[in-house]
């Protein structure tokens, strides 16, 4: 009898009392897994203050460039209360190693390649309509269709370009040159500089556009002939130049900042807000001055200024018959006092 009672006591102690006294939450539930995208961490010293993270952010006011007076360094600061943890800022960060860090994104891992090729073909999951014409066009079977997603096997692809001819959607298969990267960068920089120059010639006309009227636009044209001469000096490959220009004009959204000195009341609110120090107060003349060379087009001065001195306009581009069509619009970003 006593042994039975002892056995029951032991059973109860082991199964119930121990667990009750040492109750703990399963660590798997309480802790986030390693691939979890948490709020990005910022390494201040690595930042090159390009402002890419601010532009990529889909949530307003989640990320802001701040200037550190002591170290003369500019770095992004993340406002946790409006950050949505999408990780876009980490993806676009160009520094190596990255200034912003978050959980590992297994979707953008590098792939192994064997054949030396000039171009890479990548299928875009979002634009693809799953017509499977490229599957039939590919002669070597490098294109796979799995889980309702078209993907191109980079280790098999020979860059013949048959898939892009068969594809009925523009941009669903992307063709990218992976040679002459530095020359491509130079081509893009020259293009952007000359486009900005064209727009700056018309500043007086742009300033007269009424604010926040989305119907009013300015249309400009930029013929490519002069630019092609310059680009040919950089790299004599017309196909590459036109492809690069087309890609740039399809994606580019340029912020144009105008500066109206007459409206300025020298309140100097913008001087402290400017992350790069492009806006300075000259004490000798008693005037606030902006240096367009240093400006990042972050639009903070536009949102700060109570008198409407900086104007913000958005330019979009389209390549048609060797002419770049430019459309200018007042920005839709609200002004915060």
């Amino acid at each position: 009898m006593s042994s039975v009672i002892w056995y029951l006591y032991e059973f109860a102690r082991k199964t119930w009392i121990d667990r009750f006294l040492n109750a703990k939450t399963d660590p798997e539930i309480a802790e986030a897994p390693s691939r979890f995208r948490d709020f990005p961490e910022v390494q201040k010293d690595l930042c090159i203050s390009c402002g890419a993270c601010v532009f990529s952010c889909p949530s307003q006011g989640a990320i802001k460039l701040v200037r550190d007076e002591e170290r003369e360094n500019i770095f992004p600061v993340i406002n946790k209360s409006s950050c949505i943890r999408c990780g876009f800022c980490v993806e676009v960060c160009p520094t190596e190693p990255k200034t912003l860090k978050t959980g590992e994104n297994y979707l953008i891992m590098e792939e192994y390649r064997i054949l030396p090729q000039e171009k890479v073909y990548i299928a875009d999951e979002y634009l693809c309509i799953r017509c499977k014409k490229c599957l039939e066009a590919c002669k070597i079977g490098a294109i796979n269709f799995k889980d309702n997603v078209i993907s191109i096997d980079q280790s098999k692809c020979v860059s013949c370009g048959d898939c892009i001819n068969a594809c009925p959607v523009k941009g669903a298969i992307k063709e990218t040159y992976i040679i002459n990267i530095d020359e491509q960068k130079e081509i893009i920089n020259t293009l952007i500089k000359s486009l900005e120059g064209t727009i700056n010639l018309e500043v007086e006309r742009i300033r007269k556009l009424p604010d926040h009227d989305p119907d009013k636009i300015i249309k400009l044209e930029y013929p490519l002939a002069d630019y092609l001469q310059k680009a040919r000096n950089i790299i004599p490959n017309d196909e590459m130049i036109i492809k690069t220009v087309e890609k740039v004009t399809d994606r580019l959204k340029m912020n144009i900042i105008t500066w109206d000195d007459e409206k300025c009341n020298q309140c100097r609110l913008c001087v402290n807000e400017c992350p790069t120090g492009a806006i300075k107060y000259d004490e000798k003349i008693g005037k606030v001055e902006r240096d367009p060379e240093k400006c990042l087009r972050c639009t903070i001065c536009y949102q700060t200024c109570p008198f409407g001195v900086p104007g913000l306009y958005v330019a979009r581009f389209l390549l048609k018959n060797n002419v770049i069509l430019i459309t200018l619009k007042p920005s839709q970003i609200p002004i915060r006092g």
């Binding site: 709020f39 209360s81 409006s82 949505i84 915060r336």
Partner: peptide, 30 residues
């Protein structure tokens, strides 16, 4: 906490909640 992706300059969005009632704890994230 801030209006998040719905944040805009209008009376349609009353965020943050602390403007309307006193808040004791805030949990960020989306």
């Amino acid at each position: 906490l801030s209006g998040g992706i719905f944040q805009q300059e209008s009376d349609k969005v009353g965020a943050p909640v602390s403007d309307v009632i006193p808040v004791d704890a805030e949990v960020p994230g989306c």
